[in-house]
């Protein structure tokens, strides 16, 4: 079942060629800033401001060395990695459980729960940041990675719950009944029968959360700016800009360290990114 409107006819090769070339030029300009920073990370400062060319004269790997060790990006990289991985696990488990119950069962209070969640969809992050900061201080977890990780996992993942609930609600009832006949309880049914079926949703939700956790800025900047040991990559590059203002090539290298892992992940798992993004309007 194809759902494409092919208004570019295969016969009309001139039109086809013009459109393709126009898109190639457009794409080049579109991606240029990213290519520019990639090439700048291998150049000397002098060369960066010298011209528009993208090919460096010589690959200056020292930029990465300076960023990784000198500006502590290595440490920030692992901070970010830990926060991302742990928050993905927390989010998948908690929203998966929530979505399962919402998608398959009816129980007293269900409507209220859904109502509360819907009400939080459009709360801007700037609105909750100050009390979150205060809460982490009061719980004494604002000075280590625990607080930041929890808060990163605790942003409203309503879309994740809806993705899970939608998927679980389509699983045939027979599967569950068969499991019950075998004597499996509620928890075992969920873990051994239901969860394995939802691999695509787990992948989509994980990807969305990776994207959120890796790239988040407001929360980490508020919590970690005064506490360099637990900074994330984004905050690290931001602080780099303030501290080593003149080291352009080092900053470009730090930027590449920050963005490259996600871009690589995106290129390999594009399908799940797309599904996650489109889930927001399809639901």
């Amino acid at each position: 079942m194809s759902k494409y409107l092919n208004f570019i006819a295969e016969k009309n090769q001139v039109k086809y060629l013009i459109i393709t070339i126009a898109f190639i030029i457009f794409s080049f300009f579109w991606i240029y800033p990213l290519l520019w920073v990639l090439s700048a990370s291998f150049k000397t400062d002098f060369e960066i401001w010298g011209g528009l060319g993208l090919i460096p004269d010589r690959l200056v790997w020292e930029n990465f060395e300076r960023a990784w060790f000198g500006a502590n990006m290595g440490r920030y990289f692992f901070n970010t990695l830990i926060i991302t991985v742990v928050s993905v696990i927390i989010v998948v488990v908690t929203t998966g459980m929530f979505g399962y119950v919402i998608g398959r069962y009816s129980f007293p209070g269900k409507k209220i729960l859904i109502g509360i969640l819907i009400g939080t969809i459009f709360i801007p992050q700037g609105y909750t940041i100050i009390p979150v900061f205060d809460l982490l201080n009061n719980l004494n977890i604002s000075k280590n990675l625990i607080g930041l990780t929890l808060a990163t996992a605790g942003h409203t993942p309503v879309i994740y719950i809806l993705l899970f609930a939608g998927y679980f609600s389509r699983v045939p009832v027979e599967l569950e009944e068969a499991a019950k006949m075998d004597g499996a309880g509620f928890v075992r049914t969920f873990i051994s029968i239901m969860l394995p079926l939802t691999k695509p949703v787990v992948a989509t939700v994980s990807i969305l959360q990776v994207l959120h956790a890796w790239n988040d800025f407001l929360l980490p900047v508020v919590i970690t700016l005064g506490n360099p040991d637990i900074r994330t990559l984004s905050v690290g590059v931001y602080a780099f800009k303030g501290e080593y203002f003149v080291d352009w090539s080092g900053m470009a290298a730090a930027s590449v360290i920050t963005i490259l892992p996600i871009i690589i992940l995106f290129l390999f798992m594009q399908k799940y990114f797309v599904e996650g993004v489109q889930g927001a309007v399809k639901g």
Binding site: I31, S234, S255, I259, I263, Q270
Partner: peptide
């Protein structure tokens, strides 16, 4: 290509 900036960290984009 058009989607690429979406996955790039926003703070980095601001700085770049």
């Amino acid at each position: 290509v058009i989607f690429m900036p979406v996955v790039t960290a926003i703070a980095i984009i601001g700085i770049v």
